[in-house]
């Protein structure tokens, strides 16, 4: 079967949004200082929190699924490029 003949498949894609390194993450700092370190996990050197969006979508290929999500992230400013970084991952 050729690629273009493939029926749409279901994919799960995750968008992970984090603050840029220059933007402090007070939630992550609090978790590290007041939970991890106080509970003895002193070898943990940093914790950064973020936001995750898990999408289920139909696409003809993994590449198309990922491209669709990346296009949406940028078109709709799902992240603010001034303050955030994002990554898009296909999940099995």
């Amino acid at each position: 079967m050729r690629v273009c003949d493939r029926l749409p498949q279901k994919y799960t894609v995750e968008i992970v949004i984090e603050n840029k390194p220059a933007a402090r993450d007070p939630e992550g700092e609090t978790v590290m200082r007041d939970l991890a370190h106080k509970s003895g996990y002193t070898n943990i050197k940093s914790i950064r929190t973020g936001k995750i969006l898990r999408l289920n979508l139909e696409a003809s290929s993994e590449i198309e699924a990922k491209d669709t999500v990346i296009r949406m992230v940028n078109e709709l400013r799902i992240y603010n490029p001034v303050a955030h970084v994002y990554r898009v991952e296909i999940k099995d």
């Binding site: 603050n19 933007a23 402090r24 007070p26 939630e27 609090t30 603010n80 001034v82 303050a83 955030h84």
Partner: peptide, 11 residues
């Protein structure tokens, strides 16, 4: 307007 408004430092 440019920039971003993030959660307050004290949360």
């Amino acid at each position: 307007l440019p920039g971003a408004l993030l959660p307050n430092d004290g949360l």
